[in-house]
Design a protein around this nucleic acid. Structure first.
Lengths: 124, 124
DNA sequence: TAGTAATGAAACCAAAAGGTTTCACAAAAA
DNA sequence: TTTTTGTGAAACCTTTTGGTTTCATTACTA
């Protein structure tokens, strides 16, 4: 089954594992020791992280060291960034609007803050 | 139950819903029309998005319009950004580190990563 | 060589997730 | 008023998820 990064980082345990191996490669047992659940459970999480490319493993004797491949997070990062202008321009618009009604007297008709100015490619 | 943003965006349908209402607020039925699954299923997704603060709803007559609150994505964005330096500057260092710990016991305080010849670990 | 440690995988289980159909109800339309 | 529309929620179902215990295998160690 094809894993995807969004789903992989949805689980708090997996984010914690990622955080651990981000700083230093660790073998499976060392990772598992830091959690309350069984080694097998942690191993399954690690396998999911491997399947979606967020970590990889290197055999060393009988141990397997895991290192983070954090650049995979770019997929998520880019997905979010496509919306950054949305919420930032929208906030700006709101700020402008607030400034505006502060300058003017009370009697004001409802001005619509119609943002979405930056026409992005439409879906589908 | 407290939803979290990571889990909310893990589902492709929910990401798609988010994308739709990012451009224009839509009522529940309008959103649901764009999917193959039932309105009830879509409504459940929307409820999850509401619970974690990614959209909100405004009643208007018998309809409910949803608008995206994309700034919530900052939580995810910030989580990722804390690792950006890791993958942008530390890629080679990790390789070297692995070679290093091959020669030493695991439980070592942070040793400096020194360069040495490019000998590959022998694997099976 | 015998014993132990590290790992991968299987069998199994409970709960969560994602879906469906159905029903109730208020608002809008006829 | 009667009918239709938009919505929320309940009951129910199947698959996925996250967990367990157990077992086999292989590499170290005594």
């Amino acid at each position: 089954m094809k894993r995807d990064v969004f789903q992989a980082i949805a689980d708090p345990t997996r984010r914690e594992i990622l955080n651990m191996v981000a700083y230093k490669p660790l073998n499976v047992n060392s990772v598992a020791e830091n959690f309350d659940v069984s080694r097998a459970a942690i191993y399954k999480h690690m396998k999911i992280l491997i399947e979606c490319g967020l970590i990889n493993m290197k055999q060393q004797g009988r141990e397997r060291y895991c290192e983070a491949k954090l650049e995979k997070l770019n997929e998520v990062s880019e997905w979010i960034e496509q919306y950054r202008q949305f919420w930032e321009t929208r906030l700006d618009a709101l700020e402008l609007y607030l400034e505006e009604i502060q300058k003017k007297p009370v009697l004001q008709t409802k001005t619509k803050i119609k943002k979405h100015g930056n026409k992005k490619p439409t879906r589908k």
